[in-house]
Write a protein that binds this DNA or RNA. Structure first.
Lengths: 334, 334
DNA sequence: CTGAAAGCGCTTACAG
DNA sequence: CTGAAAGCGCTTACAG
């Protein structure tokens, strides 16, 4: 590849001048400027990002850490991230962490050595102290999707209110025996959805029936047996609030296999609005999350942090953006 | 961050020596070696990848180009890519191209400036001459998922045979009026699946009925109307071969909405075995593709190309790896 | 076996 | 307005 020196010789100037023209940071005589531009064009020159990065200490690269890109929503978040990164001249490195701290630590080490400018973290867990440390070391970090009240910039939704409103909707439509398919307890998003469920029942004077609470035992598919067992026990609910769409889909299958009709016998309400939800039979009623927007806004915030980093040293408090969810009623609820 | 010079001073040697110890490429007195290692450890030093890359002309970075990471299979391919990249010390840059040549071109330009070592391309189209050029310029390129008989290394499946066998299976099970939900014609994978369908009919002396061929008009959802129209026309098929699972899912919904039962009245067979396929009702019979393996093998091949690049200059012919598919029979076929 | 020096390709004070 | 020089943090012939 052709370098700045070649361009300089071709244009009959020094490489300093070429650099100046290209950066546009200081005035260059219009005549020489044109000469340089011509040379750049004719030689089809574009500057080496590595060398520039080494010099200025910025690489225009960000890292996206997800538990696994294969999980329903992360591809959409990733698209939001990648789109706005690209539009701002940034490149994104994809990191699957598999919720393995060691993998994540090694990635962080490698990415630091590579002078990655900032991190978007979707893989936060209660014990993610290495992420907190990263933030404390001064690296720009933005959390999204998973969040634990840390003083770190984040883009989130209000899981509690979304669940509360969803369950209130079910109650308003006449459901009284509302079961819940509850996800992994260590994720605060599920805990908050659970609290929303409980409080919605309480606000409506519906007693909480512990038998209607299904806790995930071993992956999403565990809700198949859980739902079957619940129904076989004779304790048939009139609705199930699933804390995620994949859970809802499994629940639907179990309900049907028990000979019940959806939504006539039992309503099912999901959470997330993944792509499949509109396509399945019956189309799933669910709580929609703005995944793309989350990725996109997180990236905008991150880039702002990166750009601020050089400038003023004054500490800016992290801001937590809360995005709206929307209740989408399709055919799985009556 | 701490650099090699600091380590050298700390250990009382020159930075050349530190570099030698760390690279392990030439012998260093065991004593000094230990001193250096100790310094490295105590200072928690790890070398700057940018600087190394600038010097040796390799960055241990690869690019993954996909039409959109949001599309069903690409997250799985991406996981295969990322896993094996990580295990080999490589980092992957995610590029969504949206099948937009301009986006792809700009990415390529940027990635070249960044000295990206190689490219895994899932976004190949008939007119992707910029990818062919990339290959001709000597950059390591491996294609997967989409392939057009170019002399470029690739990891593919045999779409023709897979479709042929799938349709033969339907015929063996007694189906005679087999419709097809045909995807975008510009993608050779769909064309080959179509050919497999046609030839399977012919080999079994079943006349091809043009009325049973549904061509995608405007996205996956267009198969809803297409299927409805087909059924309403009185020309009811006894099976539908969908050239992808999302199409199958839409077809299933349309069939049901017309009052027909699956698989009793009409069987539906998909292609791809996306995650949702096992979860929907009825669980979908489909052709399984080894997406993870495709990503993983493509990455292994790419890394091999990258490593060969420096060494011998002799031209090595590209090799096309064909991975096995498997017919997965669930409940949507009788 | 090890150090000094050159160089990868840039940017940016520093002179003039 | 522009060039020479230093330096970002490495690696690697070249001496010794």
């Amino acid at each position: 590849m052709i370098n700045i020196k070649t361009v300089a010789q071709y244009a009959g100037v020094s490489s300093s001048t070429v650099s100046r023209v290209l950066s546009g940071k200081s005035y260059v005589n219009e005549n020489t400027r044109q000469r340089v531009l011509k040379a750049v064009k004719e030689l089809n020159y574009s500057p080496n990002t590595l060398a520039k990065g080494l010099k200025i200490g910025r690489t225009n690269t960000i890292a996206l850490m997800v538990p696994s890109i294969e999980n329903q929503m992360f591809p959409i978040v990733a698209r939001g991230v990648e789109d706005t990164a690209r539009k701002n001249g940034f490149t994104v490195i994809l990191c699957n962490t598999y919720e393995d701290i060691e993998v994540e630590r090694q990635y962080i080490k490698k990415l630091k050595n590579r002078w990655t400018d900032g991190f978007i973290v979707c893989s936060m867990l209660p014990n993610s102290d290495h992420i907190r440390q990263l933030k404390n070391e001064g690296f720009p970090v933005v959390l999204t999707s998973r969040y634990y009240d840390d003083p770190i910039d984040a883009v989130v939704i209000d899981n509690y209110s979304a669940a509360y409103n969803a369950v209130c909707y079910l109650i308003k439509r006449g459901h009284k025996r509302i079961a819940i398919a509850m996800g992994r307890k260590e994720l605060s998003l599920y805990r908050k959805r659970f609290e929303g469920y409980i409080d919605a029942l309480k606000s409506n004077n519906i007693p909480v029936d512990k038998n209607l609470i299904m806790y995930e035992t071993d992956g999403t598919n565990s809700f198949y047996d859980l739902t079957r067992d619940l129904i076989k026990s004779g304790n048939v609910p009139d609705a199930v609030f699933a804390t995620s769409d994949p859970k809802a889909i499994v629940v639907i299958r179990a309900i049907r296999d028990c000979g019940f009709k959806i939504p006539d016998d039992i309503s099912v309400l999901g959470f997330d609005n993944i792509e499949m939800s509109a396509l399945i039979d019956p189309p799933l009623s669910t709580v929609g999350q703005p995944f793309y927007e989350m990725g996109s806004l997180a990236t905008k915030k991150l880039i702002r942090l990166i750009e601020q980093k050089g400038k003023n040293k004054e500490h800016i408090d992290p801001v937590i953006d809360v995005l709206d969810t929307n209740l989408i009623i399709r055919k799985s609820t009556r």
